[in-house]
Simulated assay, not measured.
Amino acid sequence: MKRFANRQEAGRALAARLADRSWHDPLVLGLARGGVPVAKEVAAVLHAELDVVVARKIGVPGHPEYGVGAVTADGNPIYDQHTLRSLNLTEDQLAHVCDQERAEAERRTALYRDDKPLTITGRDVILVDDGLATGVTAKAALRWISGHGPGSTTLAVPVSARASLDGTPVVAVLLPKDFRAVSRWYDSFGQTTDAEVLSALE
């Protein structure tokens, strides 16, 4: 199965999957940070407005990369209850981590959006990330979007683990059987910086 050279190439491939649909006043939201360069390419092809949404992973204490939940700057956190049970963890035990991640989501949202008004109501919203592994941050972002009355919401990613779909409609270019990690499907997958996000949004 093919790989993407970088997020820009992945964004163009994803845009090709979305371009043949009819969109009403489309709004493309990049899931910060890595989803924004992908979303920029999608917005360009669809002639759509580009903006950003921030959702932060809530990780297991001592293993922050292992996400069991996610939270946006405003709104309640979302947790994978099956994973919590399997790790013998409760939401209360993760409250401190959740507060830290919410604060970081607030910081990034303020930095990226700078109080610029964002109109979602009645529009076709396309949430874009660079890949879908557990899907927990995407689900938190989708719930945030749904609270603002979109006309429709589409989750779109260049590559997704099949188990992450979990009944959520998603447009994906690649659905590999042997997924392992998002980074495996990119030749270049460096961390996206705040400066790169701001540059894309400009």
Rank of each mutant, 00 (worst) to 15 (best):
M1F: 12
M1L: 11
M1N: 14
R3K: 14
F4T: 03
F4M: 12
F4C: 07
A5G: 06
A5W: 14
N6C: 06
E9C: 02
A10V: 10
L14V: 01
R17F: 09
R17Y: 10
L18E: 02
D20A: 13
H24E: 13
P26G: 13
V28R: 00
V28K: 01
L29K: 02
G30H: 01
L31M: 11
A32I: 01
G35Y: 07
P37V: 10
A39L: 11
A39C: 11
A39D: 06
K40V: 10
V42R: 00
A43R: 04
V45W: 05
L50I: 08
L50C: 01
L50E: 01
D51G: 04
V52H: 03
V53C: 07
V53G: 00
V54S: 01
K57W: 03
K57V: 00
K57G: 09
G59A: 08
V60Y: 05
P61G: 08
H63S: 12
P64S: 13
Y66C: 06
G67V: 01
G67E: 14
V68H: 03
V71C: 01
T72I: 07
A73I: 06
P77G: 07
P77C: 03
Y79H: 01
H82M: 08
H82L: 09
H82P: 10
H82G: 13
T83Y: 11
L84S: 05
L87I: 05
L89K: 03
E91K: 10
Q93N: 05
Q93M: 10
Q93S: 09
L94I: 02
L94D: 11
L94P: 04
A95L: 11
H96V: 13
C98R: 06
D99A: 15
E101H: 11
E101N: 07
E101W: 09
R102H: 08
E106S: 14
T109F: 02
T109Q: 14
T109K: 15
A110F: 02
D114F: 10
L118E: 10
T119D: 06
T119N: 15
T119Y: 13
T121E: 14
R123I: 07
V125T: 00
V125L: 06
D129W: 00
D129I: 13
G131S: 05
V136N: 04
T137S: 00
A138W: 05
K139E: 07
K139Q: 05
A140W: 03
A141T: 00
L142I: 04
R143Y: 03
S146P: 09
G147H: 06
G149M: 15
G151V: 03
S152K: 12
S152I: 14
S152H: 10
T153W: 12
T154V: 15
P158K: 09
P158C: 01
A161P: 03
T168I: 06
T168Y: 04
T168Q: 05
P169H: 02
V170P: 08
V170C: 12
V170G: 10
A172D: 04
V173S: 12
V173H: 07
L174N: 02
L175D: 00
L175N: 03
F179L: 06
V182T: 13
S183I: 07
W185L: 10
Y186S: 02
Y186P: 09
Y186M: 10
D187H: 15
D187G: 13
S188V: 04
S188P: 05
G190K: 11
G190F: 09
Q191M: 13
D194C: 03
E196Y: 15
V197I: 06
A200L: 04
L201T: 05
E202Y: 14
